[in-house]
């Protein structure tokens, strides 16, 4: 069970309190109606799924309730850093 640093609580807490929430930094387009089918499909379904450094979202569901971003190595499972939603990509 991982320990995850919540950037809002500024504490390491047990993974049980968290929920994974997919790849990070995929912003909902401002004007979906203006998008081509292909671009919309890309936004909806296509994800990077890298081997190694992965930007992802977690939610401290059973804690402060906040969604936040993280960089985690998908090979080692280790978190490199976690940061608040809205902050620039690390």
């Amino acid at each position: 069970m991982l320990l995850i640093h919540c950037p809002y609580c500024d504490e390491q807490r047990a993974e049980l309190e968290f929920a994974y929430a997919g790849e990070a930094h995929i912003a909902r387009p401002d004007d979906p109606a203006a998008m081509s089918d292909e671009d919309w499909q890309y936004y909806l379904f296509v994800r990077a799924n890298p081997r190694g450094r992965h930007h992802e979202r977690w939610r401290h569901t059973h804690g402060c309730g906040r969604f936040f971003n993280a960089v985690r190595d998908t090979l080692s499972d280790k978190f490199e850093v976690t940061y608040k939603a809205g902050e620039p990509r690390r």
Binding site: R13, A14, L16, E17, H62, G63, C64
Partner: peptide, 16 residues
């Protein structure tokens, strides 16, 4: 799963 020995009096948190 919290470390309650280090969870001081006066603290409050949502957990599981």
């Amino acid at each position: 799963p919290l470390d309650l020995e280090l969870f001081a009096s006066g603290r409050a948190t949502r957990t599981i």
